[in-house]
Design a protein around this nucleic acid. Structure first.
Lengths: 345, 345
DNA sequence: CTGAAAGCGCTTACAG
DNA sequence: CTGAAAGCGCTTACAG
């Protein structure tokens, strides 16, 4: 075990009181600049790292209420579906923003077997200063978070009527950007391929597409809007087939769920429809995994940026606990690849 | 803020000394059973949760050396490739095993910009009792972990010559199980489709396939062993094409990388080769995401079980720090679906 | 078997 | 501007 470098030790070396060391290292203005610099230099030289446990314990004595967000508890509400890579990216964003400010991240999973227990214990144990909730967040989850008394923010999709602070992707903008790109390339017959529509983000992307089409004065042809809603769960291809069966086909498509892109493309290719020559394609992607299909044009958004935004929001919420519900939206952007091109005349 | 229920408060209610409460709640044998039960009941009733910070601080006074693993630091070494869903599942396994024993998980990412810094600070801060390393773990990563003085375990694939404690999947067994299943179905011409072979797990699966073929007295025909080694990075389909170009085709295939399954299947289907009628397929999957293709036969392994195993191993390592390098392998199992069947006579 | 004490390393209000 | 003190909530060695 490495010998712990304590504030007392630094105090001895610098010939000052331990209290002064504490104030100096926390950049308290009451310490003379020269003293502060001397102490900070010595601390750096010795590789001093404050003892987290002692710090938290000592602070608890005074600031009974709102304190700075140093340790963030990231709580994943389990969803009984495979854990997606996007969660990992969200989490790494939360971690980044916590660590960069000298804090750290505690990761916790709430299970359905014993709902609320871990969250309750986390709240009482004093181990974290605030919470970020993600996964299958619903009314029960929000209420559990409320009982901890800690400030919290919901990250990404959730289903709850209770107003909360919320950081997520600007999903409507994804649909909007995709349509706008195709419009700029000269396309006027633009369709949409969606997935199950069971998740909020899927519906938001779709609504963004519709809204932008209307804004541009284009027909929102329901025949060109195909989703898997109402279809068997494993049927990934019928929407594409239906779309191809239309008398007049769209010249361009927005694909709302990049996870299903490969299957959709294989139906297109089997039907002899090639991108971008026969049809322009824009994918919507939100997993930081690069192009959903090599070389494709897609609307991208950084999930880790959403994690960063959530922690930043959490700090605001902690500083002003009684403010109104806040919402932060991370803006997507278009990445041009080879799957879209100007409409042939 | 919720009023903190402290041991002092319980002591007052139970009319005993705070020290007795501490001993009782930690199941110390020196406390009379009746007293212990009375105190524990009261603590439960009041919803008492011990203050983590105080506990760690107090414990630090005595046990300077090996202590129980309560708080685990999960350190992800960044890899500049998209974060895979499998990492999330690993992490949730680590979290589960930590939480179930009343502990918790601190998640940390080591970045390339400032290697070792966060790990160093984590070690000094006294925030965790042991480490689990995963991601792009190499010699430098292992050495950084060593300097913390904390017990640690490597989780999953890594590249380092330094002997470490290690928990991972029994990848050779995946290949072995797949071959054995096909053999049992009567197949004698069994091939293998691999990916880039840049990762250790890919090579281990392949070697497991080869070893089992030899064990069964089957020819290891190199023409039926196709990988993407040496091919352009985005070329996912050439291996399948090469395999199909052989004069004598295999009647069954082990697919080593389920991420690439969809692409491989589409080549097969374009060539008019259908599973399982023309060829039996067994996929290797390790992301807890269910069948890589709906209804397929695959060798599965629970990555969260690997996370659980890693923490269990960490406890052993902490208890006996000077023991030899330990290694825990999680065993995969076969899930039968429709993509494999008895060989036609 | 239980009580009273010391102290983990830190922070901040209070004196000087 | 700095020092000396009190105390955060807990654990464990030491007395009784």
């Amino acid at each position: 075990m490495v010998r712990q470098v304590t504030k007392d030790y630094i105090a001895k070396v610098c010939a000052v009181d331990p209290a002064t060391v504490s104030l100096a290292l926390n950049n308290h203005p009451r310490v003379a600049a020269s003293t502060r610099l001397r102490i900070q230099a010595e601390a750096r030289r010795l590789g001093y790292v404050p003892n987290q446990a002692a710090r938290r314990l000592a602070r608890g004595r005074f600031t009974r209420n709102a304190r700075a967000i140093e340790r963030v508890g990231a709580v994943l509400f389990d969803c009984h579906i495979p854990l997606r890579g996007a969660y990992m990216t969200l989490l790494s964003g939360v971690e980044q923003e916590s660590s960069d400010r000298g804090g750290m991240l505690v990761f916790l999973r709430e299970t359905r077997d014993n709902p609320g227990r871990r969250l309750f214990e986390l709240g009482r144990s004093g181990a974290v200063d605030g919470l970020v909730l993600f996964g299958a967040v619903d009314d029960a989850a929000v209420r559990q978070a409320q009982t901890t008394g800690l400030p919290f923010v919901v990250l990404g999709d959730y289903v709850s009527a209770i107003p909360v602070h919320h950081a997520t992707v600007d999903y409507p903008a994804m649909g909007q950007l995709a349509v706008r790109h195709l419009w700029d390339l000269g396309h006027r017959r633009i369709g949409f391929l969606g997935a199950s529509m069971r998740f909020g983000y899927q519906r938001e992307i779709r609504d963004g597409v519709k809204a932008e089409l209307r804004r541009l004065g284009l027909a929102v042809d329901t025949e060109w809007f195909q989703t898997r809603e109402g279809l068997p769960i494993l049927d990934l291809t019928t929407p594409v087939r239906r779309l191809l069966a239309r008398r007049v086909r769209p010249t361009a498509l927005v694909l709302g769920e990049s996870n299903e892109a490969t299957d959709q493309l294989s139906v297109l290719s089997q039907a002899g429809v090639k991108a971008p020559d026969d049809i322009s394609l824009v994918f919507c992607e939100s997993s930081d995994a690069g192009p959903p299909v090599p070389g494709s044009t897609y609307v991208d958004v950084s999930m880790s940026a959403v994690g960063v935004a959530a922690v930043a929001l959490l700090r605001q919420v902690a500083a002003e606990p009684d403010g109104p519900s806040r919402r932060v939206l991370v803006t997507p952007h278009l990445v041009e690849g080879g799957s879209s091109k100007h409409k042939k005349e």
